[in-house]
Design a protein around this nucleic acid. Structure first.
Length: 387
RNA sequence: GGUGGGGUGGCCGAGUGGCUAAUGGCAGCAGACUGUAAAUCUGCCGGGCUCACGCUCUACGUAGGUUCGAAUCCUACCCCCACCA
């Protein structure tokens, strides 16, 4: 039965569970690599499988612009198009309301964007986002939301939160219609797709609680996301919001913290009851030459790595670390060969994926909290430098 | 041997009397990056002291000279390139 979530163990607020989706099972807590354009940037889907990713993201706005959802559907839908046969989730385009500020105009009806691809005018509404996502065909669709900046004052955060709530009603209605109409998948089986709502409210406790209450009232859902974090607010604010929401989030569905995070954020989020994460940092930092390692982070291009025969992270089991030396990976960056970008990206997503796997094992064993504290202590020790 | 051109910071290359420790680019050295407009962006980059402002020393082939002042003008020398013999 798709979209069921089974909670297997808890330790404090931390949870271990299993989410069943049309294209496979996701064991949580878990990190979901971001593949905005239907590709985890720079990586072969096989790389992503080898890293043991269970589910990846794609982006509604970007795929709508290029190649267009109709094209994706003509080629069999997102899974067949990309050859990624495991679960997928599409973000709604709500984040682009935030990231493309200056190229868009928000109204009650929706958001008018100026395409960065060709300058054309594009319009995304809660309904349109649902239609595009349904056509793309991911396992999970996200509701179209209004993401304000992290430091948004109460009035703006409130406006965005209330608009997100109204858009939730419109999006949910349209999604239900689409599901009722039905759409045969590439193998003839009717397409199944969950819709998850997003809690907004910025760093304002009253708004966060109201947002969540509004979502819970409209339930039940098969998953709930927390959005609008890691967009410029402080870490203490992010942690406070998560702690505030945790007791009010339904226990029986997965909680997805959108756009987070760095390794330490994963552990801090898991400790505060989060089950799913996504973040571009793993691949972007990978392309920019920053590798996450046990002791912190390492700039691969550091001259100190020139003659190092060690792997990026001796404790890592990824394709990069089991095969290549720091000296060679550094050389690839200095020589500007694309293999370097790919290898460090692979390493970073494996690093986060493994972190999720380890956290899960510790929660199941009841040893998560001690492990997490020790892990964070070691990770903060120093910048990863060759020894 | 002759004629012409040229020698600038690790490299390439601007600059032709003061605003020049010297534009740019490359290389080098660091930093940033959180639901991807990003294989991107930012900073440093002659030596010494300074967190910094700043101070100071040494610098535009070499050696002299002109000038209040020279990478820039003059003289000699050394070296490089092109063409001619």
């Amino acid at each position: 039965m798709s979209f069921t979530y089974t909670l297997e163990a808890t330790e404090g607020a931390a949870r271990a569970g299993t989410l069943v989706l049309p294209h496979g099972v996701v064991r949580t807590p878990a990190f979901m690599p971001v593949g905005t354009h239907g590709v985890v940037r720079g990586l072969d889907p096989q790389d992503v499988r080898d890293a043991n990713a269970q589910i990846i993201l794609a982006n509604t706005y970007h795929l709508h612009l290029r190649p267009g959802e109709a094209t994706v559907r003509a080629l069999g839908g997102l899974h067949r198009f990309t050859t990624w046969e495991r679960p997928m989730l599409t973000d709604s385009g709500g984040f682009q309301v935030f990231s493309l500020e200056g190229m868009r105009t928000i109204s009650e009806e929706g958001v008018a964007f100026t395409s960065h691809v060709d300058g054309s005018r594009r319009f995304l509404s809660p309904e349109r986002s649902m239609e595009v996502q349904w056509t793309l065909g991911a396992d999970i669709a996200m509701v179209f939301d209004h993401v304000p900046p992290g430091q948004a004052p109460h009035a703006l955060a409130r406006e965005a939160m209330e608009r997100t709530e109204r858009w939730l009603d419109r999006g949910r209605k349209r999604h239900a219609e689409l599901v009722a109409e039905g759409l045969p998948g590439p193998d003839g089986v009717p397409q199944q797709q969950a819709l998850w709502p997003i809690v907004q409210g910025g760093i304002h406790d009253d708004l966060r609680l109201r947002s969540l209450a509004g979502i819970v009232d409209r339930g039940p859902w098969t998953g709930i996301a927390v959005g609008g974090l890691s967009v410029g607010e402080s870490k203490p604010d992010m942690h406070r919001v998560l702690e505030l929401l945790e007791p009010h989030l339904p226990r029986e569905v997965p909680r997805y913290l959108m756009g987070v995070g760095f390794p330490e954020d994963l552990l801090e989020g898991i400790a505060r009851g989060i089950d799913l994460f996504d973040c571009v940092a793993a691949t972007r930092n990978g392309r920019h030459g920053t590798a996450w390692v046990t002791e912190g982070r390492m700039n691969v291009k550091l001259s100190a790595n020139r003659t190092s025969d060690l792997p990026l992270d001796p404790g890592c089991d990824c394709t990069c670390c089991t095969r290549f030396s720091r000296g060679y990976v550094r050389h690839l960056f200095m020589a500007e060969d694309m293999l370097g970008l790919r290898l460090v990206s692979v390493h970073n997503i494996r690093f986060l994926l493994r972190l999720g796997e380890q956290a899960r094992a510790h929660i199941l064993a009841g040893t998560f909290d001690g492990w997490r504290r020790e892990w964070l202590r070691v990770h903060a020790t120093r910048r990863g430098r060759p020894t």
